[in-house]
């Protein structure tokens, strides 16, 4: 009984946290906790078969399914906290409290005798006892369950199936679309430039430098920029400049460094560079410096 008094309050807390959590993923994790707690409670009450089924079917299969759907729908699809029906939350709290008090009182008063225990029913063990019942008294329900499972699997396939409405684009279509875009907007049809490779740093978080000294915006992943873990090229260029000054080199590297420091703004500004600027221009500083 000590295990019960440890598990039960935590289960109730986890259930409340499940209702209160704003992110659906947190709700799913809390639900997993409640289900595992319930599995242990089954084991405490002489139901080892249901303990295993609870862990395998609920925490294993059903919650994985929930998490898969969360992945499909979008993990960050959190609820807005705006009430759409006025007073709904208050009414829900009142209804919940009333229902809970009624249920708890009714259930607590319904039981008057001492529990019989499952020792007699478990004469041959839990699984054998369950199997005997399942294949004699409940055999029709068992068969119907099989039909239900097949129907559910079919229904899920039919519901989740998506008909392709447009033909699948071939390589030729993709190439034509790319070149059409190049003709209309000037977007470079080739692959994106790789990230910067310098003598001192060659990680993917460093943008490549264009021939005129600017940082190439297309050469680094958008995710890294959004995360703010980008090393800026001018920073590195200044570094190189300093090193060059120390070893006595002068002249053209200085101008390149100035230009890089002057032209590259914050990362958000970098996105507005015209894509055609990625092409080396004849009048860029790459030529005259």
């Amino acid at each position: 009984m000590i295990a019960f008094w440890i598990l039960a309050p935590l289960a109730v807390l986890a259930a409340l946290a499940m209702v209160a959590a704003r992110k659906a993923v947190h709700s799913a994790l809390m639900l997993a906790y409640v289900m595992i707690t319930l599995a242990i409670l089954y084991a405490m009450q002489d139901a080892p078969f249901l303990f295993a089924v609870q862990v395998i079917v609920y925490t294993g299969a059903v919650l994985m399914l929930f998490l898969f759907v969360l992945m499909l729908v979008g993990v960050d699809a959190s609820d807005s906290l705006v009430e759409t029906i006025k007073g709904q939350r208050l009414l829900a709290v009142l209804a919940g409290l009333g229902f809970g008090v009624l249920l708890v009182l009714g259930v607590a008063q319904a039981v008057v005798s001492a529990p019989v225990g499952l020792e007699a029913a478990h004469a041959q063990g839990n699984v054998v006892g369950l199997a005997e019942l399942l294949f004699t008294k409940y055999v029709f329900a068992f068969e119907v369950t099989g039909a239900l499972l097949i129907t559910a699997a079919l229904a899920a396939m039919v519901l989740a199936h998506r008909e392709r409405l447009t033909p699948k684009p071939t390589q030729r279509d993709l190439a034509e679309a790319r070149l059409r875009e190049y003709a209309e907007t000037g977007r470079h049809p080739g692959p994106l430039p790789p990230p910067g490779v310098y003598s001192r740093h060659n990680a993917v978080d460093t943008p490549a430098l264009l021939p005129d000294g600017r940082a190439s915006d297309l050469s680094v992943s958008r995710t890294l920029r959004a995360r703010g873990t980008l090393r800026s090229a001018p920073e590195l260029a200044d570094d190189v400049d300093e090193t060059l000054r120390k070893i006595g080199a002068t002249g053209r590297t200085r101008t390149v460094g100035d230009r890089a420091a002057g032209e590259v703004g914050p990362p958000t500004e970098g996105r507005t560079f015209p894509a055609s600027g990625e092409q080396p221009d004849g009048d860029g500083t790459g030529g005259d410096s």
């Binding site: 109730v12 259930a15 409640v34 919940g96 249920l103």
Partner: peptide, 10 residues
């Protein structure tokens, strides 16, 4: 039973 009722209510 009380735990069951509480979880059902929640």
């Amino acid at each position: 039973l009380v735990l069951s009722a509480l979880l059902f209510t929640i």
